[in-house]
Simulated scan of single mutants.
Amino acid sequence: MKKRFLTVGLATLLLAACSDEQATTNETPEATTLKVASLIPPMTEILELVEPTLEAEGINLEIVVLGDNVQPNAALAANEVDANFFQHKPYMEEYNRNNDANLVPIEEIYFANYGVYAKNVDTIDALPDGATVAIANDVSNIDRSLALLAQHNVITLGDKKDVYYTEADITANPKNLQFEAVDLLMLARMYDDADAVVMTPAYASPLGLTPKSDALLTEGIDNDFAITLVARDDNKDDGAIEALAEAMTSDAVREFLKTNYDETAIAAF
């Protein structure tokens, strides 16, 4: 009887061990949380659109909406978020240079059609001599603004003396335009105060302005300024980052941009 008891006991223990192993095997893995910093629509809307896709893959997308164009890169560099989605590659590269950071572009998502807007004139030729033109004050967007004006022969630029164009590179300025550099988030406010403003659709849209209907000049897509998903060099190959990039370049995102933003946000994929 004693031997039989031991045999039954051993079988019971083995059965229990197998049951525990099976329970562990069948246990749903804990979802991966992916924190992505962003600023404004359509950036935040695209992230919201792909949330269900990522959730189905076991990835919990946490969208961190920040209040200015400095915080997203600072948060990413400090490992406070895993990626960000608000900037073009030249802006990211300038941040890297100034902060000894290792941010990397993952995927270009859309072109924010840059444009020149003016409240009181309908054509660029109608701007008065000496007109004040408001532009963003970071070096990559100064470059972009000047290049847009040069693209349409409003000014002439010489060869770049450094990484970016600056006002010092202007070789001809027939209208004697006066440039006022302000923070990106101040551009929309300058629409009432300056003769013209050079800005993206994100800042023109709250004013009821679109590149297609209201801009005196537009940039198009022949440039390096697509709004891009950005991560760090140490996490660029993470599966969750790759899944996010794939979801953000889906047909659903392309259709969303086409339906809701037309020319203001042109798919880059």
Rank of each mutant, 00 (worst) to 15 (best):
Q22W: 07
V65L: 12
A267G: 11
A134G: 04
R254Y: 07
A204M: 08
A172L: 04
K160A: 09
D143A: 06
D262L: 05
D82H: 14
V104F: 03
L157H: 01
L14A: 13
E255G: 02
K161N: 12
A112D: 06
Y117G: 05
A134E: 01
L187V: 05
L207F: 10
N113G: 14
E263A: 04
N84K: 04
N141W: 09
L216H: 05
V8L: 14
Q151I: 00
A245L: 08
E219C: 08
A252T: 10
N79Y: 12
H152N: 02
L216C: 09
L54E: 01
I109Q: 01
L257D: 05
L15R: 08
I46W: 03
N113Y: 02
V64K: 09
A16D: 06
P174G: 09
M92F: 07
E21V: 12
S38E: 07
N84D: 15
A150H: 02
N120W: 00
E219Y: 06
E48Y: 05
F5S: 12
F111V: 01
I170W: 00
P201Q: 03
E27V: 06
A172Y: 01
D222Y: 05
V65G: 03
K89Y: 13
I109P: 02
E93N: 15
A83Y: 10
I155N: 01
T264M: 13
Y114A: 07
V64H: 09
I46H: 02
S205R: 15
Y95N: 04
T12M: 13
A202C: 11
A196T: 06
E255K: 09
T249W: 02
L6D: 10
V50E: 09
I40T: 14
D162Y: 13
D138E: 11
Q22Y: 11
E51H: 12
A245I: 05
L216G: 06
D143S: 10
S140Y: 08
V182Q: 08
A17T: 13
T218P: 06
Y261C: 03
Q71F: 07
N141G: 00
K89V: 15
A268F: 00
E55T: 09
Q71S: 14
L148E: 03
T132R: 10
C18R: 13
L14Y: 10
E255D: 12
F111R: 01
N84F: 14
Q87S: 13
Q22V: 12
A23W: 10
T25E: 14
I63L: 07
T33D: 03
V81E: 05
V163C: 05
R4G: 12
D100K: 04
Q22N: 11
G158K: 09
I40V: 15
L13P: 04
V36Y: 11
I40A: 15
H152F: 06
A188D: 15
A78Y: 02
A118G: 07
K119I: 03
L54C: 06
Q22E: 13
N73P: 10
